[in-house]
């Protein structure tokens, strides 16, 4: 069962939210859908899940159109920050109704999650806090028998303990019953160890798609004196660079060349850093002079604990 998205375009009056997006989501794979605010992530997920219409393009599940097609839609489930459950409905009723609609529900997992999250199922949905509304939606999403589960900001309002519990249970349920998860989140570091494949979207276009491990090793930073760093990276695919009080950091896409001069420090970018630099490069793509940012401040965006120092 493969979900294929072909040439998806969504235009609003003022804005083009998606521009000719083509993607394939394979079964039994965990994807990360990464993008800045307004990049088009939620628009894409809402179109796939029949909540809004596309301007152009197709979404197909095994060759069958998905849009407004009930039999195909029953293989898909979107959990998002939008609250679509009736506010006065009890949490327990939400789960039994979901079972009725989808013809199945993993009650063992549901009860385990209800206990783990300490969710009060006798309360109505509107009486729950933001975090517990998210938890209710997460439980429904993890327990439906759909083959494609889309999680749009799945940890919104969750504290650190609950987030960790969710990530653990996600891995567990995936190994128990492999299916396709597409996770859209801003907390990239937290999910980087979960995902197998990554889709990066910006300004409504897919910037990159590939497996997470190779993506984490597909870019590196070069840190040293400006002259040395600039000379070393002159013929490389530079994403962006920073100058900080006499030091320069250049972010480069590609593999590390074998002959790194002494005085330069090379580190692989983690998934988050890679995403930030790629999005930055795309944003400033039409104005290369903006790719270099001069600053007297420390660059916090480069998170060293994610980087691997490579041999000089």
């Amino acid at each position: 069962m493969t979900l294929k998205i072909s040439h998806l375009t969504k235009r609003y009056k003022e804005k083009q939210a998606l521009n000719n997006v083509s993607l394939t989501f394979e079964p039994s794979t965990i994807y990360a859908l990464l993008g800045n605010n307004g990049a088009g992530k939620s628009t894409l997920l809402n179109i796939i899940n029949n909540r809004i219409f596309t301007t152009e393009g197709e979404v197909e599940l095994d060759g069958e159109p998905v849009i407004d097609n009930s039999p195909a839609l029953r293989h898909l489930y979107l959990m998002s920050e939008d609250n679509l459950f009736p506010p006065s409905m009890k949490v327990s009723t939400i789960f039994t109704m979901t079972e009725g609609f989808f013809g199945g529900f993993d009650w063992d997992l549901a009860n385990h999650l209800i206990n783990g999250f300490e969710l009060q199922t006798s309360l109505s949905f509107k009486k729950l806090s933001t975090g517990y509304r998210t938890i209710t939606k997460l439980i429904a999403a993890l327990c439906v028998p759909a083959n494609y589960i889309f999680l749009d900001e799945p940890v919104l309002g969750l504290d650190a303990t609950h987030r960790e519990f969710f990530y653990r249970e996600l891995i567990q349920t995936f190994s128990d019953r492999p299916r396709c998860f597409v996770i859209s989140t801003h907390l990239i570091e937290e999910i980087s160890h979960l995902v197998e494949s990554v889709v990066i979207i910006d300004d409504g276009v897919i910037l990159e798609q590939g497996d997470a491990e190779s993506m984490e090793r597909s870019a590196f930073s070069v840190e040293g004196s400006p002259d040395l760093a600039e000379e070393f990276t002159a013929n490389l695919d530079v994403l962006s660079s920073n100058r900080i009080t006499g030091q320069m950091t250049v972010y480069v896409k590609g593999t590390v060349p074998p002959d790194v001069p002494a005085g330069l420090r090379i580190e692989y970018l983690g998934l988050q850093d890679y995403f930030v630099r790629l999005a930055q490069a795309h944003k400033f793509g039409q104005n290369p002079s903006l790719r270099t940012m001069d600053s007297d401040f420390t660059d916090d965006s480069h998170d060293s604990h994610n980087s691997t120092e490579v041999a000089r």
């Binding site: 039999p71 029953r74 609609f101 989808f102 013809g103 199945g104 529900f105 028998p145 083959n147």
Partner: peptide, 17 residues
């Protein structure tokens, strides 16, 4: 778990209504 044909969802939707 298996997704049942969509026709089974209709009685459930009507019961809800």
């Amino acid at each position: 778990m298996k997704v049942l044909p969509s026709s089974t969802a209709l009685p459930c939707a009507l019961r809800y209504k």
